[in-house]
């Protein structure tokens, strides 16, 4: 009777967006005369930080400071349509819509600045600090507040833009399964180290270490949040969680957190990661998406690590102590039969 260590790995892909497309999102942008750029949406933030990353994408695309961008969501009376936050789609779809809206708004900004600075629009640029300036001559510039005031009071223009992103809905060929099931593919590779107690059947995950390739990180700390939380959710899926403890029977379905094991602060293993960026073809600034994928690769990596530790394949989730002990017993019997 002893504790055995094992290491397992898994490599996965994850597709971005509703699999057959047809999932639009819109964004509207307008500048008030205070120099605030309001991005109006009907998109939801689940905690992953959509309101923040969309403000970053909007500020970047408009060329204005992050602080000058305001996200107004989510109200169906004022916000344009968004399909919703799921399928790792929100940053990709909404971000693309915001970039398109920003392009339209920028065009007006440059027209107005061109009048005020008396140079052609193509000779202007934003400095990201709140000014539009003449290329190569940064002392000739106009602040965005003055620009917004001039647009409104002097030139009778609205600094505004409309943005829309849709991947057209595609069909599945019923006979071959030919289809277009993604917008881009993100990737993860996880290595898990476990310790399996062959007396109690308990598995302790020592570490979950992963590499992710997600196109571009809009906000690395928010990406890290997805990685940490997703890794722990994946671990719990591999080892603890089920709404049917006697599957397929439905008896003893848990009714709360006293019976359904969501990991707590003391259950968290060491979680470490690196993030690669190979910008995608069609994501905003090359974004792919990270939300869902982080919970996937730890599951098989842990199951493979258990095999590496004690030589049994647990192919029914979760890998409870009971399943591990039964598998070990079966393995011992087989070895005895082999020895005879």
């Amino acid at each position: 009777m002893a504790k055995h260590r094992g290491v397992g790995m898994a490599a996965v892909n994850y597709p971005t967006g509703m699999n057959l497309g047809g999932d639009p999102s819109q964004a509207l942008i307008h500048a008030t005369t205070t120099g605030t750029f309001v991005i109006t949406l009907s998109s939801t933030d689940l905690g992953q930080g959509l309101k923040t990353v969309i403000a970053q994408i909007g500020a970047e695309a408009l060329g204005v400071p992050f602080e000058n961008v305001l996200i107004d969501t989510a109200d169906t009376d004022t916000g344009p349509h968004c399909m919703g936050t799921f399928a790792s789609r929100a940053t990709h779809r909404v971000g693309n819509a915001v970039i398109r809206a920003a392009e339209e708004a920028r065009k007006v900004m440059f027209e107005v600045a061109s009048e005020e600075l008396e140079v052609a629009p193509e000779d202007l640029e934003t400095d990201g600090q709140g000014n539009i300036r003449v290329k190569g001559s940064p002392e000739h510039s106009i602040n965005i507040v003055d620009l917004a005031l001039a647009a409104h009071f002097k030139y009778g223009k609205t600094i505004s833009g409309r943005g829309m992103y849709i991947k057209p809905k595609s069909e599945v060929d019923p006979d071959t399964g030919a289809m277009d099931p993604d917008s881009t593919e993100a990737h993860a590779c996880t290595v898990a180290e476990v310790e399996v107690d062959d007396e109690t059947g308990e598995v302790k995950v020592l570490s979950i270490k992963s590499a992710y390739e997600i196109g571009r990180q809009v906000n690395p700390k928010l990406v890290e949040g997805q990685i940490q939380g997703g890794s722990l959710m994946g671990m719990a899926h591999a080892l603890y969680e089920t709404t049917a403890p006697y599957y397929p029977a439905i008896d003893h379905a848990p009714g709360g957190f006293n019976e359904y094991i969501v990991p707590g602060p003391q259950d968290q293993p060491e979680i470490e990661s690196v993030v690669l960026e190979y910008p995608s073809v069609n994501g905003p600034f090359g974004v792919k998406g990270v939300g869902e994928m982080t919970a996937n690769s730890p599951i098989p990596a842990i199951i493979n690590a258990i095999h590496d530790a004690v030589g049994v394949w647990i192919t029914e989730l979760p890998a409870t102590p009971e399943k591990i002990l039964r598998a070990l017993e079966e393995k011992r019997k087989e070895e005895e039969r082999g020895a005879e």
Binding site: G225, I227, Q228, L232, F257, V262, G264
Partner: peptide, 8 residues
Amino acid sequence: LCRCTGYQ
């Protein structure tokens, strides 16, 4: 309990 952050 926190379902989002992973506690770190």
